[in-house]
C-alpha cells in the first residue's frame, strides 16, 4: 500500500468512514493477526485480540501522529491489546495452566528446519503467562522490569516464567526432532494414523510422557 493511499485511508477513518475502516482493516489484517497469534492460544482468540486492537485504533485514530510510521503504531497497539487481554483473563488461566518445572532432557538443540507455522504452534502451546513473558522478552525486546510493570508481576516472576517457557519450548523442539528422525527410519512403514485429537490432550501427552512413550 502506498503512502498516499494509506494517508487517504487514515483520513477516512478519522471521519469514521466505515468503508475506509474496512479497507484499512483488510490491509493490515495479516500483519496484525500474526502479532496477535503469538500472544493467543488459537486463531479465534487471536481474532478477538486483534479486533480489540482495531477497535482502539478506530476510536483513537485522531491521536495517531502522521510523523511516525503507521505500521509501528498499529503493532504497538496490537501488543498492548494482547497484554490487556492477558490481564483480563489472568484470573481464569493462571491457576489452570501454570505447572511446575519439569525435567528437561540434557540434549542440545541442533539446527532445525522448523518453519513459521511450527514455531507459532509451539508458542501457542505454552501456558498464557509463559507465552506472554516469552513474547515480550524474546520477540518484542522488553526488559523484565518493563514486563513486570506491564503485567503487574514482579521482575522475578517474569524471569521465572521466561525460564519455564524456554524449558517447554526446548522440550517441544527436541520432541519434534525425535519425531522427524523416527519418520526417516520407518523402513517401508512410512505412514501415520491420522486421528482427531484435542490440542490440550496433545499438550499434556507431550509434557507428561513425551510423544512416543
Amino acid at each position: 500500500m502506498g503512502e498516499e493511499e494509506l494517508r487517504h485511508l487514515i483520513q477516512g477513518c478519522v471521519k469514521q468512514d466505515r468503508k475506509c475502516q474496512k479497507m484499512l482493516y483488510k490491509a493490515f489484517y495479516g500483519f496484525s493477526m500474526s502479532i496477535c497469534l503469538r500472544y493467543a492460544r488459537d486463531r479465534d482468540e487471536a481474532a478477538e485480540i486483534m479486533n480489540q486492537g482495531f477497535f482502539k485504533i478506530f476510536t483513537n485514530i485522531e491521536r495517531y501522529d502522521p510523523e511516525r510510521p503507521f505500521k509501528a503504531w498499529l503493532g504497538k497497539i496490537m501488543t498492548n491489546a494482547s497484554i490487556d487481554h492477558y490481564r483480563a483473563n489472568l484470573k481464569i488461566t493462571y491457576s489452570d495452566e501454570l505447572e511446575k518445572a519439569e525435567h528437561i532432557s540434557d540434549r542440545e538443540i541442533a539446527n532445525t528446519n522448523l518453519n513459521y507455522k511450527d514455531l507459532l504452534d509451539m508458542v501457542q502451546l505454552l501456558p498464557q503467562a509463559y507465552r506472554t513473558a516469552f513474547n515480550l522478552f524474546v520477540i518484542d525486546g522488553y526488559s523484565h522490569d518493563e514486563i513486570g510493570a506491564m503485567l503487574n508481576i514482579s521482575p522475578g516472576t517474569s524471569k521465572s516464567n521466561l525460564h519455564k517457557a524456554r524449558q517447554k519450548l526446548k522440550q517441544m523442539i527436541l520432541d519434534a526432532e525425535a519425531s522427524a528422525s523416527q519418520n526417516k527410519y520407518k523402513g517401508g512403514n512410512d505412514y501415520a494414523y491420522i486421528t482427531a485429537i484435542d490440542k490440550t490432550d496433545f499438550v499434556s501427552t507431550i509434557f507428561n510422557n513425551g510423544i512416543w512413550k
Binding site: 495479516g30 497469534l37 532445525t112 522448523l114 513459521y116 514455531l119 508458542v123 520477540i139 519450548l169 523442539i173
Partner: peptide
C-alpha cells in the same frame, strides 16, 4: 532458542487470509 524464535516470528508474514 531465542534466536530461533526471534528470527522465525519477529517478522510477521502477511499470509493470514482476510
Amino acid at each position: 532458542l531465542d534466536d530461533l524464535f526471534k528470527k522465525g516470528l519477529q517478522e510477521p508474514i502477511d499470509s493470514e487470509l482476510f
